[in-house]
Nucleic acid binder design. Structure first.
Lengths: 240, 240
DNA sequence: CGAAGGGTTGATCAATTTCAATCGCGGTGG
DNA sequence: CCACCGCGATTGAAATTGATCAACCCTTCG
């Protein structure tokens, strides 16, 4: 099976055969997690770096009032928290949203690999910068976009991220997330996101059903979202 | 004058005299920026790393509809974008909110310094992890907190950050930001933030006037905000 | 067959924005 | 020294968005 992590890293820096081999070796062993299973919780001692090979994860936090906010989606190929071991404990939780395969890499191993393979270091740093850009884009969405724009924007982002790791089929891609999960990521209620999705469907921009998104009119969707892909920094590698 | 950057870094890792000297040398030369001046704009080619020595900056983005969203405040001691040179162009802008002194450090110099001074590398990585935690906290606030909670939470954060670099006096600290700027950071209108501040003042939790915040009742403010400081990871160093 | 989770819809309520005015204060030009 | 200007703060009233409350439906799965 393809190692999506290697795929993604190759897209961020030119990797030699030796670089690829090192990455594959580091992520050869993976653990399986069931959907809804926490990989690590807020307050836990920090651990190894996670690398998602299959399935979707999310970072989230539960507030005192019981509501949940998802701060990031992690899809195949994504790694989290390069130097996390420098911190004493986690300030948020990470959970599997679908059954997932996740490799764990100790900070020391990662450090050694990066010292020996500068291209890998470069790719990791770049990935981290892109992740920060994504977080900032989320802040912008939550702060200044209406709910419809926000949903459209998230779908644009997820579509491009999925496409860059070869997870799309033409104008479709699998989005195995319930409306409740999407709502928790976008700061709205599942009732409201349902209505927004209906509007987007009737508008002819996009549709979401049975775990699959169809981009019906890309230009229209991008326009609704006010989407500018520059923050994903895909320029690093020509669009396929 | 104190070098707040050195101050902050000392709080994140144990630094030797040689480490401190290196940091001071790297940030000895600083540039002055007037309030409202952009240091770099979205779309610009990426440049050196900025280190704030005096004054406040913010990261922001202007949306197609003309609204602005601030994604981060940078106060004295804060550095931005360690490896930014890996990206081709900026995905957001950085602006001075007050007159500011900012040092610029080239990526190569920074890299050399970190290679030679592992403690500095550790402090930089830690600072970056904390900054990411702050971004996630902002996402949580924007998504799941009411406007009152959100304002209270931001003030708690800024108070602690200011305190950790010695910028507070008892229960007061200087917050040289207009209500419009705060509104753009919190995703609300300046009209509404004004009303929220009034409520917080009447509640007896905090007051903001003439550029200065007074925490009237810390416990009450923390309670309103649902504030948990764990995400600032101050544990690394005993609270002064 | 029955239960559960997710999706859909309607009606009502509450939080925020929007629009409009007014106020106050520091700075500027005369 | 004083009137004037402009930005930021403040307040009121109306308009909107999104949340809440409550059903009901559909499909999956044991």
């Amino acid at each position: 099976m393809v190692n999506r992590f290697v795929e993604k890293m190759s897209g961020l820096a030119d990797l030699t055969a030796s670089d690829v081999a090192a990455l594959e070796a580091a992520t050869a062993k993976s653990h399986r997690y069931a959907a809804r299973k926490d990989l690590i919780r807020e307050g836990d001692e920090t651990g190894p770096m996670f690398v998602v090979l299959e399935g979707w994860l999310c970072r989230y936090k539960i507030l005192p009032n019981g509501t949940r906010q998802i701060m990031a989606f992690l899809m195949p190929g994504d790694a989290c928290d390069l130097n996390i071991k420098l911190l004493a404990e986690m300030d948020h939780s990470i959970q599997a949203l679908t059954p997932a395969h996740v490799a764990r890499v100790a900070r020391a191993d990662m450090q050694a690999m990066m010292d020996k393979h500068p291209n890998i270091a470069r790719a990791m740093y770049t990935a981290q910068l892109v992740d920060e850009g994504i977080m900032r884009a989320w802040i912008v969405s939550m702060g200044r976009r209406t709910s419809t724009e926000r949903v459209a924007h998230l779908i644009c982002e997820l579509y491009l991220r999925a496409r860059s790791i070869g997870l799309t089929h033409d104008d479709e891609f699998a989005l195995p997330l319930s409306q409740l999960v999407l709502a928790d990521a976008l700061g709205m209620t599942s009732v409201h996101i349902n209505r927004v999705l209906k509007v987007l469907r009737l508008t002819g921009a996009m549709g979401l059903s049975r775990g699959s998104v169809t981009i019906m009119d890309p230009a229209k969707l991008v326009n609704i979202a006010g989407f500018d892909e520059n923050y994903l920094h895909r320029r690093l590698r020509p669009t396929n």
